[in-house]
Design a protein around this nucleic acid. Sequence first.
DNA 1: TTGTAAGCGTTATCAA
DNA 2: TTGATAACGCTTACAA
Lengths: 354, 354
Amino acid sequence: MSERKRATIRDVAEATGLALSTVSNALAGKHYVTDETRTLVQQAAERLGYRASAVARGLRMRRSFAIGVLIADVANPSSADFVRGVEDVAMAEKCSLFLCNTDGDEERQIWHMRTLLDRQVDGMVLISQHCSSSAVRAFLGGDPPFVLIQRRNFDHRDDYVGSDNVTGLSQALRHLHDLGHQRIGFVRGPADSSSALERLQTFQSHVASLGFHDDPDLIFPGDYTFAAGVAAADRLLRLRRPPTAIFASSDMNAMGVIETAATAGLNVPSDLSVVGLDDIALAAFRSINLTTVRLRKREMGVAAATLLMQRIRERTEPGSEQIFPTDLIVRGSTCPPARPARGARPRRSEVTLG
Amino acid sequence: MSERKRATIRDVAEATGLALSTVSNALAGKHYVTDETRTLVQQAAERLGYRASAVARGLRMRRSFAIGVLIADVANPSSADFVRGVEDVAMAEKCSLFLCNTDGDEERQIWHMRTLLDRQVDGMVLISQHCSSSAVRAFLGGDPPFVLIQRRNFDHRDDYVGSDNVTGLSQALRHLHDLGHQRIGFVRGPADSSSALERLQTFQSHVASLGFHDDPDLIFPGDYTFAAGVAAADRLLRLRRPPTAIFASSDMNAMGVIETAATAGLNVPSDLSVVGLDDIALAAFRSINLTTVRLRKREMGVAAATLLMQRIRERTEPGSEQIFPTDLIVRGSTCPPARPARGARPRRSEVTLG
DNA sequence: TTGTAAGCGTTATCAA
DNA sequence: TTGATAACGCTTACAA
């Protein structure tokens, strides 16, 4: 293949004796090109192994046929599914995908957005990214369209694909209430996430309506990582009156909570119920068996990319919002609380493997 | 920001009254440009919000400052870490990264490679991809340099970053042998993976040297997915004389084995020992606690990208190989086999959570 | 040290 | 229906 220099459209023109523009038009499928010239061109192109340079085309058409995807970390199983969904439709639309890991760091995000703009991406998908500060907003003019996933800013009419942050959580809280829990620890999620905020509000309204203990100490400001789950449990379980159940900010976060609980000699669920949020693959494993609120991540990625492609094509005004349903998947990490929650001496956890 | 049209280098030239080329040279940091003109240019560029178009630059320099990464599926936790490692160094080198999911499908891989070439990527990283068929080889000339990860072709002197497929596995087999296992099931991994083949050979040589049962039925041709683990266990556990231990092709694969064993009423490890390969985050969780052979994936991604960048810069001949160490992490999914392996009526598995 | 001009490989405009 | 030509925005000889 790339032994010799790549054939250009000029080579095809010379090979056929036609003009550059005719070759271009023939290949672009313009209707007014004769069938015979078209086949002539196609055959020559085939023979020479000609493929149009996406770079030259991009320069001329001011369209790169590529989109940028910003995400905290693809290596976090909680979020990779979104990316996969986006790629599915990008590929179908013959768009390539620039992957950008921001680690939730605003500066890093801005750096990536800047280079995406330099590359004239046709659009961007921001998965749980910063979208409010003026530094970030400077890149969120209408020009390259963008779609937000999971994190939005109500001051702007952006395109948004999110989850119903009320229903699933509300089912989860009712579930815990029905089991008899009264003190629920809550891991809040990233500070400036709209979804995390909506969940917090849902939580707080249920604290009131279901009569849970209203104690600010029960709310911990961790993010979606495993480490944050460790930190949260570390803190919450040391409270003078620890919670009997913890609602984590994500499944990975829940795993951190469970690990820490186990380290402290507490068994899940008999000593502590834990509810996650995501329904990642491992949540369903028998040995994990995590009760969790399911998010339709891949579908959401598909929806976001589909919408983005539409905006790119039609240049219509943003402001659409698509909310995906959430539902509680009850598994084995929740059960009624142990009798006397106070000062209970921890029981040794029963470990399945080893 | 993108309210008005982007400023071009021409705008900067006009604003300063200098020539385009001078502006370009000043911004490119050419040493012969006067300090005062340089600052003049820089200030004007700053003021106008000028940023060079990566597309135009790419066309002219025939270099896109972007690399392609091909992977089966980013959403599979077994492989996402490689990508993260690659992105770490790409970003440091101001390169962007095109992500391509191939699902292990050769046609899909070829489609992606073709478009990467159309985009004139500076290089490619192929993570466990096809690299032998002539259809694929057609894209693997020297021209855009590439680095293979985990899967190679010995007929070609390619750059390769891989794992030591002997040491870790060999430790694992010795470990099983020391525990008293004699019938080991083995999930082979993808058919045309060199690493999978090396592991199979290692396995077979140990079958001989350690005196394991040499039974072709014990070798199952599954890939790295969870589903393949399910299929493998489904098959292996139904053998007239089932194995007392299974060596999976990956951690996700091992999880499939464990799930299926549990469904069949078998407890891991007391009824069946399972060894994985990867050491993904969840393997260390107390409730999973998987004995596994650790792969240094993120480091390998970093190494591959670093090597690729060097090739891009120096255009030196490929053929380097970097083999990363592997080691056995003994956790709780392995133990001595149950007494009479034959016709043993399965014991109910002890499930930790619910 | 700076300026002029050519060219990277396309597509779009307009004549023929 | 096809062909000549001008951009697209940059870098790089080469001339001044």
